[in-house]
Amino acid sequence: MAADVWDVLVIGAGPAGAVAAAALAERGVRVAILEKDLRLEAKPGEVLTPNAIAILSHLGLLDLIEANDNLACPLACIDRAWSMARPNREHFLGHLGGRAWVIDRVALERLLVSRAMRASVDVFLGHHVRGLSRRHGYWSVQARSSDGLASLRASFVVDASGRAATVARRLGAKRKSLFRLLALHVQSAPDTERQSEPASLTIEAAAVGWWYAVCGPRQTLTCALFTDDPVLARSGAARSTLLTALDDTNSLPRWTKELVRSGRMRSVDASPSLLGQPAGEGWLAIGDAAASFDPLASQGLANALASAVAGAEAIGAYLKGDRVPVEAFAVRTTETWRHSVRQLFPIYQAAAHRWPTPFWQAHSSA
């Protein structure tokens, strides 16, 4: 390592971590990122809706997203078959201020890490945090890699480790889930030979949960079932169960069934959850580490980017001796998450009227 002492250590090289690190480095702060993975694996496509335009512009990403077909493709509309049998369509193309995109998450993460490195952020891949302690105003972070155990020191630590909340949990912060939610998702390989169509996102409620289907950059197809049934996540039964569950749907794209039948299936935790303590003396959590939003809101990525910018501003003030912005950041994080929950509650209630099943009854009363 070029140095073993930094002003700020960021744990996690996802969008939130990379953006926060770059923002701090551009202020002249010495920053390093520790990322446990050596390479980025494929992830489901994500959507940026019009309310992300402001943060994208602030970060200088808007023009890049609109110009790079491998990074993003315009989203024409969202079809929501939620509390009614026929979908309600929300258009984006051709509407002033209504732009939206389907994002290649891996391509975005690579772009943001590259930007951080160009801003003089030190990035260490394959480093797993094994311990941390604070003494005399400095953090000591132990990280293990293929080269052995390294000790790094910093004045401030940022937890950008996603739902794992590696730093916060080690410091005793508790995480509370609003309800259990699993995402069983299937994704195709990119296929530039597939006939290109304007991207559209379909969301449809079913008895056991709700479906998500979208065609993203390079004609990559993604579909997912969000459910709370752990039996569905068992590999032996999941595929046949999903195919049966598709029989309850009417609005999903024609390609969905074939993708479920032949694509690679994965199960991930998608539960909306919040850290009881998103910040403390000399540390704060950003992105999913601080607050994981209900995927139904399609706001996770935009909120992660906004959280990174706000967190970097608070850290900059902290390093100059002002602790108040870090405390205010923690309050805003909690308020933003709770506001999102309140907005979605009526949608779950409406779906429960159409589908009076255990899934919807539980989620409409959470």
Rank of each mutant, 00 (worst) to 15 (best):
S307P: 13
S307K: 12
A308T: 02
A308E: 12
A308V: 01
A308Q: 11
V309I: 10
V309P: 02
A310S: 14
A310L: 11
G311A: 07
G311K: 05
G311L: 00
A312H: 06
E313Q: 03
E313S: 11
A314V: 03
A314E: 04
A314H: 04
A314L: 06
A314Y: 05
I315E: 06
I315M: 06
I315L: 04
I315A: 00
G316Q: 00
G316K: 01
A317E: 15
A317W: 03
A317N: 10
Y318L: 09
Y318Q: 10
L319A: 00
L319P: 00
K320W: 01
K320L: 09
K320R: 15
D322K: 04
R323E: 13
R323G: 06
V324G: 09
V326Q: 12
V326W: 06
V326D: 10
V326C: 10
V326R: 02
E327H: 13
E327G: 13
E327Y: 08
E327K: 15
A328N: 01
A328Y: 11
F329H: 10
F329M: 05
A330D: 02
A330I: 02
A330H: 03
V331F: 11
V331R: 15
V331Y: 10
V331T: 13
V331I: 09
V331G: 04
R332T: 02
R332V: 07
R332M: 09
R332Y: 06
R332G: 03
T333G: 07
T334M: 13
T334W: 07
T334G: 06
E335S: 08
E335N: 07
T336A: 13
T336V: 00
T336N: 03
T336G: 03
